[in-house]
Every structure is written in C-alpha cells, then in structure tokens.
Simulated scan of single mutants.
Amino acid sequence: MRDLMNLMGKAKEMQAKFQALQEEIAQMETEGQSGGGAVKVTMTGKFEMTRLKIDPSLFKEDDVEILEDLILAAHNDARTKAEQATQKKTQEMTAGLPLPPGMKLPF
C-alpha cells in the first residue's frame, strides 16, 4: 500500500512537470528562414506563425512563385526547429523514466 501511495505521489508530480513543460513549449519561439535569410518566419511551440519578414528585394511581379516557395520553406524550417526543441525538452524531462520504446507523450 505504501508503494502505491508513493507511486501516486510521483505520478501527480510528473503530471505537474508535464503541464509546466507544455506551457514552456507554448511560449517558446523559433525562427526559420530561406533564401539566405530573405524570408524569415517566427512561430510558437504550438506551431502558430507569429511573424513573417520578407526582404523588399523579393517584391517583383515576375518572382511571385519564388516568393511563395521561400515562404513555405521558411515556415517548414521554423516548424522543424520547433519540433526538435519540443522533442529535446521532452527527452530532458523524461530522462531516466522507464518508458516503453517509441512511446509518444501527449503533446
């Protein structure tokens, strides 16, 4: 019975830590770029785009498709960075826990 109470206490502690981690990730910002920095996208840990910066030299009627591709590439770069940062923070949080291989936490 004592082990069960200890386990329940640890479970509540881990739940609080995961909630804090989720809030930290939500506040995190990452920046992706493409075109050598001509297009920059900033997004949150929840993958919401918060900023978009485009170098004015890209505003040419003939280059609309290039600009669209650069925006998509910058967005994807920022998302990849946000996913990697989230994964790293989660791994740090769960270090030493006996989780089954491949188990994904609810993020």
Rank of each mutant, 00 (worst) to 15 (best):
G102L: 08
K10E: 15
Q33I: 01
Q87K: 15
T86H: 07
M14P: 07
E23D: 13
Q27W: 05
A38Q: 10
Q22L: 05
E68V: 12
A95W: 09
M28K: 01
F47W: 04
V39E: 00
T94L: 12
D55M: 00
A73I: 03
A26F: 11
Q15K: 14
E48S: 07
E68D: 11
A38G: 01
Q22G: 13
A11F: 07
P98I: 14
K81G: 00
V39H: 00
F47Q: 10
M93F: 11
V64Y: 00
E65W: 06
F107R: 03
E31R: 03
F47H: 09
Q27Y: 07
A74V: 07
A74S: 08
L97K: 02
F59E: 02
V39W: 00
E92G: 12
E65N: 14
P101H: 12
Q22W: 03
Q87E: 14
E24D: 12
M28W: 03
G96P: 15
Q27H: 11
K104T: 14
T80H: 09
E48A: 09
F18R: 09
M93I: 11
L70K: 03
T86A: 12
H75I: 08
D69V: 08
G35T: 02
A20E: 15
E29F: 05
L105Y: 14
V39M: 00
E48N: 04
L4D: 14
F59C: 02
P101V: 07
L67R: 02
T44L: 04
M43Q: 10
K104Q: 14
S34Y: 08
P56Q: 01
S57N: 07
V41L: 00
L21G: 08
A26Y: 06
T42N: 02
G9Q: 12
V39A: 03
N6G: 13
P56D: 00
I66H: 05
Q91E: 15
Q84K: 09
Q19Y: 08
E68F: 10
P101N: 13
G45Q: 01
L72A: 07
E13V: 10
A95L: 10
K81I: 04
D63Y: 06
F107H: 08
S34I: 06
Q27M: 12
A38F: 08
E31C: 00
K10H: 13
Q84F: 04
L99Q: 10
Q84R: 05
Q19A: 13
N6W: 10
L97G: 07
K104W: 09
E13A: 14
I25P: 05
D69L: 14
P98L: 12
G37S: 10
P56E: 01
Q22H: 06
L7W: 04
Q15L: 05
L105H: 12
N6Q: 13
A74H: 02
D77P: 00
M93E: 15
E31L: 04
G37D: 03
G32P: 00
G37P: 06
L67N: 01
T30H: 02
